[in-house]
Each structure stands twice: as C-alpha cells, then as structure tokens.
C-alpha cells in the first residue's frame, strides 16, 4: 500500500471529489495560486482552474457566509480556514447560519459544506493562533465535527465529509501534515461517528482524538515495555456524531479510562466523555476516570513552556500509573 503524508491524503481526497462532482469547489485564503498556506491544496488550482479553486480576500465572515449561501443552492463548498482560530471572526456564519438554518427553516434547507483547516497548539504561534474549537462547535446541534489523526483517516473522513449533506467542521493539525501513513489508492470513505481502536489492550482505555491519539500510542508502548500495562487506544475520529458504543465497550473490557485531550479541560471534549462514562460505565470502572488535557491557560509563546502545555506521552504514562 502506498505510504503518503497526511497532507497528501487530504489533497488526494479533494482531487478525487473535485473530479467526481462538479458541484464541489474549494475556497479560502491562499488555497489556489499560492498552493495553500500549508500546501494542503498544492497543485489543485493548476489542475482544476479558477472556477473550482478560489482564492479569497482575508474576509472569513464573508467567505464562510458565501459558502453557506452557495451550499443552500446545492453546491458543495469546501472552505479552508488558514487556522481554525480564524473562524472566530466568522462564527456568526458557522453557528447561526450553517448550524441553525436547517432547523429554523423546518428542514426546507440544508447546508452541505465542509469547513476545514488546522486546529492545534504546539507550534509557537501564541494563543490567538492555537485554538482548538472542536468542543464548542460540537456544542451546536446541526454541526458535525471531525478530527482525524492519521493519513488514512484524513482521506476517508474528508471524502465522507464532502459527501455529507450537513455542515462538517473538519479539524486538521499542522503538526500532522508531514506524517506518513499507508493510504490505499482510489476513493474510500470512513463514516462519521465511528471510532477506531488503534491499539488493543486489556488494562486501561486511553481515549483521544486528533494528535493526542498518537501521544496515546506512544504512551502505550512505554506502558507495555516498562510497566507491563497493556493500554487500549480509542481514536474518536469524529466528535459529533460520537461513537459512544466503542468507548463503552472498551471501558467495559479494561475497567479503567484515561482521557487524553489537546482541548482545554473546562467543558472540553474529555468532559463530555467523562460524563458519558459516569452515566453509563459507572459499574464497570475500577478507578476514577482521569484526564490529561492541555493546561488551562492560553497557549504560551515561549517554546519550552509551550511543550509543557500539551499532553505528552510521559504525562499520559504518569496519569495511567496513578490509577493503579
């Protein structure tokens, strides 16, 4: 199977969907002639032209809203945010329009749009460029939120998201764009709302999404090699819809759960998972549900300190050990 980067996997997904469906178009800052700020859309403008690959001015509210309007008319916009942090100047369009129009119109209108871009800290760009809004966008019924961790998942989830008839907030990670992974040739889909057990184990469930999944896999190797603990790693892949069954099955097997989340702790994604476990896995648990999250402060600029702010494998190992 070919080994390609996370970035290339996304690029392949776009190219395949652009070819398959003429209603699909890409839009955003620097996506066309510049080939993408993070080169995710590299080569697409040359191949598909200015009608399908559209550079926009720095006007997030306007182009997000334009995407919503175009989607209402049956087009399938894939709108890039250079950073998900920039969505904050266009949230009215995402939450009030993309998120609520179907409901407020009594189902007369739907908004088949993908809003995508990186949503991560850890790159020394300070607080305003390091937001991870998956928790609060998943707080809007009407929106879907997807956070792939691997090249394989990125492609399959992106194709599903483009074909989905609702608005999908697709959150990538600049630290993952260069990661390599096996990705089959040709189109395939991964359904939204289906988690993936990335590593099987009997002793503890590590539950995560996005880059934190890779942190968990690294921690699991240390736990196995140094502590004889076999961790199961559950990759949520999509936050909303959420695959609760896979989470509960895993905890029923391991009886321990450590939630690892690059989101902030207060009302973060891990809070939702903790509530789920408290309500539906209470009798299965041999230890309290524990969390390793981003530290509850704005992302600091200073490089060595920023590293301390995000969960790393050692922090996960320490937290797991504390539960035994």
């Amino acid at each position: 199977m070919p080994v390609i980067t996370y970035r290339q996997a996304l690029n392949d997904a776009f190219a395949e969907e652009l070819t398959r469906d003429e209603n699909v178009f890409l839009m955003g800052e620097e996506v066309a002639q510049y080939n993408g700020a993070y080169k995710v859309t590299e080569g697409l403008w040359k191949r598909f032209g200015s009608k399908r690959i559209i550079d926009t001015p720095i006007s997030e509210a306007a182009f997000l809203g334009m995407g919503v309007g175009a989607a209402m008319m049956g087009l399938r916009p894939v709108v890039e945010l250079m950073f998900w942090s920039f969505a904050y100047v266009g949230l009215d369009q995402i939450i009030n329009n993309a998120g609520c129009i179907r409901y407020m119109s009594g189902g007369l209108i739907n908004v088949p749009m993908v809003i995508r871009g990186p949503a991560n800290g850890g790159t020394n760009v300070g607080a305003t460029h390091s937001h991870t809004p998956e928790n609060f966008l998943a707080n809007t019924p009407g929106l879907k939120v997807v956070c792939p961790a691997t090249p394989y998942d990125a492609k399959g989830l992106m194709i599903s998201s483009i074909r989905d008839n609702d608005t999908v907030c697709f959150m990538e990670n600049t630290l993952l764009y260069g990661d390599l992974g096996e990705v089959p040739d040709g189109s395939y889909t991964i359904p939204l709302g289906v988690a993936d057990v990335k590593r099987e184990g009997l002793d503890v469930s590590l539950i995560a999404h996005g880059r934190a999944v890779l942190t968990c896999l690294a921690a699991a190797e240390i736990l196995a090699a140094e502590h004889g603990i076999e961790a199961e790693v559950v990759d949520l892949r999509s936050i909303r819809p959420l695959d609760e069954e896979t989470i509960l099955n895993s905890v029923a097997k391991t009886h321990r759960a450590v939630l690892v989340d690059e989101n902030k702790p207060f009302c973060g994604v891990s809070s939702q998972i903790a509530a789920l476990l408290a309500e539906h896995a209470f009798d299965e648990l041999d230890a309290p549900v524990l969390r390793v999250t981003a530290l509850d402060a704005p992302a600091i600029y200073s490089m060595p300190l920023e590293k301390l702010q995000l969960p790393d494998a050692q922090a996960v190992v320490a937290k797991v050990l504390s539960s035994f």
Partner: peptide, 30 residues
Amino acid sequence: FAPDKHYWGGHGIVGGQAPLGMGLAFALKY
C-alpha cells in the same frame, strides 16, 4: 423560508444574511 419560490429567508442576526446572499449569487454564476 420558501426556497421553492427562490426565497431564502428570513434571518435574525443583523447583516448576517448579506454573505448568504452573495452565496446565492455565486451559485447562480457557478
């Protein structure tokens, strides 16, 4: 809303419908 009559709302947030209108125009042109 009455999309069958080319009427796309009906929006409560002041000015929020302006880019949607632009999306309608974009789709026509597209």
